[in-house]
Design a protein around this nucleic acid. Structure first.
Length: 467
DNA sequence: ATGTTC
């Protein structure tokens, strides 16, 4: 029988290295004993660690228990930050942002109008720090991002040949646990980081299996209609309608494992009061900080590579070359400059980079438009905007209160075909994107809109191997 | 977000 972390906490272990080591020792050498016997052994060790310092089995656990406990870093008075669309933001997200503004490393922050509560920094939170990176300020899905390609094809084809476009999505995208039988080669796998960092060496094989796949949750790949409304645009396309592909996904298991590992490292190295513990940071001058920075950037590039494979497969299926491609991370940290020219680390956890002239994509929901935007570089927003409409209700509440018939009717009304997805992704579970765009009109200009027509999200693939 | 827990 295997012990759990909670079992150990029950006999007095604190969250930390000793707990992890104790679990390892029990799993390796004592896993055949009944749980009660395992616990009574560990109880002796934690009661009198001195006696076990040189024990062949428990020496490593006892020595760790005897290490002095790291002092807790004090929070400072809260620094000022700007909230956009405060009336639509839940209190939990505001509270989390206030805590983040009290870290000694924090130099600035902003909360986007689609914000909601997360772990550590809220989703929709932007945090600028000095020389420190917070793994939970980036989020679990490192490099979660948007990518859009525009085609010189009549958008009406989507209605005329709906079934053929649906088949293109089914054949060329993978959701949930499903992956491609033959993953496509990619330059990302030549990256030295996969050899240089221990953690990455063990993650490469699954990254290879998963490349080009989309995962689950709010991720999607969809065909839709882009309406370019601004004649002055960096895409170099005239005002008008375009058939387009839009994708939303991240770095799959690769980023999730990097995030989990370095959050753990940070929380062990950087002890904060309970309400701030998930905001543990890594100093960029330390080995761990530099490793995380490399791993995070690799995960971001991997997420980008996944999107490029998705769009390439669909370009082949369409038999066309895209006119333009737009893409942006919205879960990431960047080295940027503040107004005084100092280097800052900008964490955007569910926020779109909106530096002056920077293009980005802000999706709505499966039945409402997304927006192609150009950042205005507003300092108060730390050059950021929202990464979507934001949830109006939790996944649990959405599943309990929205009826499949209502979703079906809404999709039909908006002329949207859907493959997969659960009620937690229903359009009515999201805020009104037009209202959210209004809240952030000082942050971005709109170049065009994207209306979804044929949407694929994660469905039963969660439970069922496809290929 | 994630083969969802060291």
């Amino acid at each position: 029988m295997s012990l759990t972390g909670n079992d150990l906490k029950g006999i007095g272990f604190q969250e930390g290295k000793a707990l992890g080591l104790a679990l390892q020792v029990m799993e390796k050498d004592f896993s055949t004993l009944p749980v009660a016997d395992q616990l009574s052994l560990l109880k002796k060790v934690i009661t009198d660690p001195e006696a076990y310092q040189h024990d062949v089995n428990f020496g490593v656990v006892a020595s760790q228990l005897l290490q002095p406990v790291d002092p807790i870093i004090a929070l400072e008075p809260q620094k000022a930050y700007t909230v956009y669309g405060a009336e639509g933001i839940e209190q939990g997200a505001i509270g989390q942002m206030q805590t983040a503004m009290r870290l000694p490393v924090t130099v600035g922050g902003a909360l986007m109008p689609d914000a909601h509560q997360g772990y550590g920094l809220p989703i929709g939170g932007v945090l600028a720090t000095h020389n420190a990176v917070i793994p939970y300020g980036v989020g679990v899905d490192i490099g979660c991002r948007m990518c859009m390609t525009l085609y010189a094809m009549p958008a009406a084809m989507l209605q005329q040949k709906t079934d053929s476009f649906k088949k293109m999505l089914v054949d060329n995208t993978r959701f949930g646990i499903a992956t491609f039988k033959k993953p496509q080669e990619d330059a990302i796998f030549d990256r030295q980081e996969f050899q240089d960092l221990n953690i990455l060496r063990g993650l490469k094989d699954r990254a290879w299996q998963q490349i080009g796949s989309s995962g689950g949750g709010n991720h999607f790949v969809e065909f839709g209609v882009v309406e370019i409304t601004n004649a002055i645009n960096e895409l170099n396309v005239p005002v008008g309608q375009y058939l387009a592909v839009l994708s939303h996904s991240g770095s799959r298991g690769l980023g999730a494992n990097i995030a989990r590992y370095y959050t753990d490292v940070a929380m062990n190295l950087c002890k904060l009061p309970a309400e701030a513990k998930h905001l543990a940071w890594l100093d960029l001058d330390t080995e761990a900080g530099q490793e995380y920075w490399l791993a995070m950037n690799l995960a971001g590039d991997y997420a980008s590579a996944c999107h490029h494979q998705i769009h390439n497969r669909l370009a082949v299926a369409l038999g066309e070359t895209p006119l333009a491609m737009i893409e942006n991370h919205h879960n990431f940290a960047w080295k940027e400059k503040d107004a005084q020219g100092r280097e800052i680390i900008v964490h955007r956890k569910g926020a779109t980079p909106a530096g002056k002239g920077v293009l980005g994509i802000i999706p709505g929901s499966m039945a409402s438009p997304g927006f192609i935007v150009r950042g205005k570089g507003l300092a108060a927003s730390i050059s950021s905007a929202s990464h979507g409409a934001g949830r109006l209700m939790s996944r649990t509440k959405a599943k309990a209160s929205i009826s499949p018939a209502a979703v079906k009717a809404m999709l039909q009304h908006e002329g949207v075909e859907l493959i997969g997805a659960g009620l937690d992704e229903a359009p009515m579970a999201y805020k009104d994107i037009h209202q959210v765009m209004e809240y952030q009109k000082d942050l971005v200009d709109t170049l065009g809109t994207f209306m979804p027509r044929i949407v694929r999200m994660c469905g039963d693939e969660r439970f069922q191997e496809v290929d």
